[in-house]
């Protein structure tokens, strides 16, 4: 506790000296400052969650309905009509275990993309590390994710698919998804401030991205020697990884490694770009 306050003191204490100088190209990410502002991150996440469930009439029901309806429609189209192979699992579970990280990701980059524009009243009136905004916007999606994870466990019970030790990999994979979502979301939020009409590009991008990711189909549908290309899509490895974690399939470590590396790269690029344009936000928002 004492130590935590020290960080805050460094940035908010009486000994702090603020030096304001013109922006000069690349800026180094001030991780200590970000840490000093972590309470703000928490407060904004809590705000988003509260508002999300206060405002919508359906509230929690919405968090259940969205993935379940998607699952039913996809099951009918891809499972029953197109009869896509599922490595022997019932299609609803096969799909849902992948839909879980995908829907979190799709929602996260959607909200993060518009987050800076949506917070223009904050950006133009008070200083804090702007990175907090896209980061916090992803938080409320985690609540939805845990609700839909509950549904998956119920489904598995219904279809009699047992949990295996693989499930312990889920938290690691979740970190991977969050990481990717933060990277892409941060990048999109900064680009959307500079180019307003970019927000029309995002839904389209998400749609294409969905079909480049083994959500409705299995990775095994792709010939072995080409699978690594799919791995270049950072969501491919993670989504297939989630499926393996819940359904007890073996992990594809090669694809996972490629995906994680790409995620890291996107994350770094996202942060660097964001930091570069951060100081201009208030002028152009």
């Amino acid at each position: 506790m004492e130590k935590q306050d020290k960080f805050h003191e460094d940035y908010f204490g009486s000994d702090h000296v603020t030096v304001i100088v013109p922006e000069t190209g690349w800026r180094k990410l001030d991780i200590r400052e970000l840490w000093a502002y972590r309470e703000l991150l928490k407060a904004l996440i809590v705000r988003d969650i509260k508002i999300r469930y206060k405002q919508t009439v359906l509230g929690v029901a919405w968090a259940i309905l969205q993935p379940v309806v998607t699952m039913i429609v996809f099951t009918i189209v891809f499972g029953k009509l197109a009869k896509l192979p599922t490595d022997g699992y019932p299609y609803p579970i096969f799909l849902y275990s992948a839909l879980l990280p995908w829907m979190f990701f799709a929602n996260a980059i959607g909200t993060a993309g518009g987050s800076l524009i949506g917070s223009s009243h904050l950006v133009s009136k008070v200083y804090f590390p702007r990175l907090i905004i896209p980061f916090s916007s992803i938080g409320s999606g985690l609540v939805d994710l845990s609700i839909s994870t509950g549904i998956l466990l119920l489904l598995m019970l219904y279809y009699g698919v047992p949990l295996t030790a693989n499930i312990f990999a889920a938290p690691v994979l979740l970190v991977g998804v969050i990481f990717t979502a933060l990277g892409v979301g941060t990048l999109l939020s900064a680009v959307t401030v500079a180019y307003r009409d970019f927000r029309f590009v995002v839904p389209f991008m998400v749609q294409i991205w969905l079909f480049c990711t083994p959500v409705v189909y299995a990775m095994s549908l792709i010939p072995d020697r080409w699978q690594w290309i799919l791995g270049l899509n950072p969501m491919a490895g993670v989504v297939e990884g989630f499926r393996a974690a819940f359904l007890g399939k073996p992990f594809d470590l090669v694809t996972l490694t490629i995906s994680f590396s790409i995620s890291t790269l996107i994350f770094v690029i996202g942060i660097i770009y964001f930091e570069k344009v951060e100081r201009r936000f208030a002028d152009i928002i």
């Binding site: 000994d15 702090h16 603020t18 304001i20 100088v21 013109p22 009243h121 904050l122 008070v126 100081r279």
Partner: peptide, 28 residues
Amino acid sequence: ILSRITAPTEGRAILSGKVASLLEVGTG
């Protein structure tokens, strides 16, 4: 500029101590 909302084009400003700026009542 003094509240660090926008960056200056030239020159600099140094503020010693904890700064609170109130450009609007009820931000957020």
